[in-house]
C-alpha cells in the first residue's frame, strides 16, 4: 500500500500523538483505572496501524525493520516471565506479589475501601503491565506491518 492523499496525512499527523499519549496513559495507569497492558498496547498499535495506512508500508519499512519489532516482542515476553519467576524466588509462588507491602518501588498498600488513587501502589502489577504493553505493541504492529508490506510487493527482495 503506497501513501494516501495529503488530507489523510495531515489528519494522521494530528491524531497520532493524541492516540500515543492515551495508550501510554492506559498502560501506565493500569493498576488504577480501567485498562491495562493489553488494552493500552492495542490502542498504541492502532495508532501505528493508522501510520501504516496513511503513509504506506514501504515508508514505514524504511524506518523500522520487522526483526527489531519481533525482538521487542520477545523482550516483553521474557520480562513478563522474569517478573513472575522473581515472585517464585522472593515470595512463595509463581506470580507471587513480592513488592506489595515492602518499602521498595510500588510498595504502598492503600487503605481499605474507596480511596484516592495513589500511583505508588500495586507491587509487581505495574511492571507486568509495562512488559505486556511492550509485547502487545510490538506484536500487533508487526502483524499489520508485515501483512501490508507483503501485499504491496509481489516478491520480497532479499
Amino acid at each position: 500500500m503506497s501513501g494516501m492523499s495529503k488530507i489523510v496525512k495531515t489528519a494522521v499527523n494530528i491524531l497520532f500523538p493524541l492516540t500515543m499519549i492515551f495508550g501510554l496513559y492506559v498502560i501506565a495507569h493500569g493498576h488504577l483505572t480501567p485498562g491495562g497492558g493489553f488494552q493500552g498496547g492495542a490502542i498504541v498499535a492502532s495508532g501505528c496501524a493508522m501510520i501504516v495506512v496513511a503513509y504506506g508500508s514501504k515508508w514505514v519499512f524504511k524506518q523500522i525493520k520487522e526483526k527489531r519489532l519481533s525482538s521487542f516482542e520477545s523482550i516483553g515476553a521474557v520480562g513478563f516471565i522474569a517478573v513472575a519467576l522473581l515472585g517464585l524466588v522472593f515470595s512463595t509462588v509463581f506470580f507471587g506479589n513480592f513488592l506489595a507491602g515492602s518499602s521498595l518501588l510500588f510498595g504502598t498498600i492503600p487503605a481499605t475501601g474507596s480511596t484516592g488513587a495513589d500511583f505508588n501502589t500495586g507491587g509487581v502489577l505495574p511492571l507486568m503491565n509495562f512488559a505486556v504493553g511492550v509485547k502487545v505493541i510490538a506484536g500487533l504492529f508487526v502483524i499489520v506491518l508485515v501483512m501490508a508490506y507483503a501485499s504491496s510487493v509481489k516478491e520480497w527482495d532479499t
Partner: peptide, 17 residues
Amino acid sequence: TQNETGTNNAVTSVVFD
C-alpha cells in the same frame, strides 16, 4: 484485594495476580 495485592483496581489484580 486491597490488602493482598495493594491495588485499587480489582480487575487488574485478578488478571495479573
